[in-house]
Amino acid sequence: MENTIKVERAILSLTQDDLAKKIGVSRQTINSIEANRYVPSTVLALKLSDVFDKPVNDFFKLSEDD
């Protein structure tokens, strides 16, 4: 799974900490998601979708090995 959360976050001028507070997780979790070390749950993905005001498919993409 690949994502463009870092880009979406930059567009909204949010820090990792800001985004983490908005969706109720720790900053380290946002860092792990951005680094593709962790694939979030559907609930978290939908919360991110709410913050970015975009469908989940716009910032999460399946990679070839998925």
Binding site: V25, S26, Y38
Partner: peptide, 9 residues
Amino acid sequence: KDEDELVVK
């Protein structure tokens, strides 16, 4: 302290 779904995992 800051429990979230990643910490649970």
